[in-house]
């Protein structure tokens, strides 16, 4: 099975800081793939490179077998890569429906179709009763759903979710998990950056771990949780051994 998204050797420097160092990662079609790592590991930077918002200093990004490294963000959206933003970016002056319609217009040039599509997508992510509200009036949870709805309205093949669960309370997270799963079941491949481990464990088929700009591990969630390199990345050098020792004592 060939990967829908192939990232090879991506390096991103900001001045002297190497935010992402020679990163490689594959996302298989039809999966939910997680990208986790401690704060400042370079997850969001890698995301912006994949979505085309920043040009990497080195490396390549291939989507559906074609090299998209040189394409700008809006062209990648047309090819089928959609992203959400960690810091939500609603069009505050527009209604929820109009927000989603901006995404829907990409593949439905007529207003009637775009609006109908926006309504359908909005209802699918649970924004049905709020469609005519101004986007600026939504709660944090509502805004996260709006981010997803807008991205989905572009009818992507790959959806990049950047911490859609951050800032939500446990019950809101519980409500959100089936929404993400249903998106995958509808045929959209998902790559998600996430800090909420409970969600990563229950949603993801494969997890990639990045720390200090380098990919240090990948595997199923269960494999990752046992990997000493991952434990050390989160808890510090030698933590895995100390934890193991503690268990013996």
């Amino acid at each position: 099975m060939s990967a829908l998204l192939q990232v090879r050797g991506v390096t991103m420097r900001f001045g002297g800081l190497v935010a992402v160092d020679d990163a490689a990662l594959d996302v298989a079609p039809g999966t939910i793939t997680g990208l986790i790592g401690p704060n400042g590991a370079g997850k969001t930077t890698l995301f912006t490179v994949i979505a085309g918002f920043q040009t990497a200093n080195a490396g390549s990004v291939a989507f559906a077998g074609e090299d998209v490294t040189a394409l700008p963000a809006h062209t990648r959206a047309l090819r089928g890569i959609a992203r959400t933003f960690q810091i939500v970016q609603p069009f505050a002056g527009l209604s929820v429906r109009e927000n989603i319609a901006v995404g829907a217009f990409l593949r439905h040039p007529s207003r009637g179709e775009a609006m109908a599509r926006a309504t359908a997508v909005g209802e699918a992510v649970g924004l049905g009763p709020l469609l005519d509200r101004p986007a600026g009036a939504l709660t944090v949870a509502g805004r996260k759903r709006l981010e997803m709805a807008r991205a989905l309205a572009t009818e992507p093949r790959l959806l990049l979710l950047d911490e859609v669960l951050a800032g939500l309370n446990p019950s809101e997270i519980r409500d959100m998990l089936p929404v993400v799963r249903r998106i995958r079941d509808d045929g959209v491949t998902i790559l998600m950056v996430e800090h909420v481990m409970q969600a990563v464990m229950s949603l993801c088929d494969t997890v990639h771990v990045i720390a200090q700009g380098r990919m240090i591990a990948h595997g199923t969630p269960a494999e990752i949780a046992r990997d000493p390199k991952v434990v050390e990345a989160y808890l510090g050098h030698g933590a895995a051994r100390r934890l193991a020792g503690g268990a013996d004592a």
Binding site: A73, V102, F105
Partner: peptide, 19 residues
């Protein structure tokens, strides 16, 4: 719709395929 989207948030508009 795209013009208003660019006014409200250019970055978000680009993510939705707006040139």
């Amino acid at each position: 719709a795209w013009l208003v989207a660019v006014r409200e948030n250019e970055e978000a508009a680009r993510a939705l395929g707006v040139d």
